[in-house]
Amino acid sequence: MQLNPAHKTIIKATATAVAMFAFVFWVMVPLYNVLCQVTGLNGKTDPNPYKTVPAAVDTSRTITVQFLATNNKGMNWDFKPSVHQVKVHPGEVGSLNFYVRNPSGKNMVGQAIPSVTPFEATDYLHKTECFCFTSQPLEGHEEKDMPLKIIVDQDLPKHINKLTLSYTLFDITEMNNKRTAAR
């Protein structure tokens, strides 16, 4: 079949439209996630455990790390850190617990999402163990102490001496159900 010039124009334009639709899902979304991870944009931390590298503890500096626990709208669990701040030297492991209790009679699933401020410190706060790496199913009235272990990187920019690690707890019970239903 011979294509006349108008058909070629139409095919090109249609292909552009389809490509732009695909661009949203397969370029913009992954690109955004990569950008966030590389730059620490929005204080998003690495979702995987940090593999410790042996390094000397830098005792010349003391960093204060503060902890915040927030419930997202509609989440009714009790959620709080065992201590509100720890003072650590870079390279030293700090550990604490987050207490969580499901006061409702129902089985629920929670997910804690971490965020670090200031943004530029995001890549220097490592978590070797964190309850945020997985979702947390709790039966009705169940309570739990969830462990957290952190290391502040020796390369933390010199002007930063205080970090905030904030957790927001989301109720993902319904989303999990939808996901199961969609499969």
């Binding site: 955004y32 966030c36 997202n72 997910q111 989303m175 939808k178 969609a182």
Partner: peptide
């Protein structure tokens, strides 16, 4: 409707 989390921080979105 389908349980994805493009814009839901609880599921890893933003």
């Amino acid at each position: 409707h389908f349980g994805t989390a493009f814009f839901n921080a609880g599921g890893g979105g933003d």
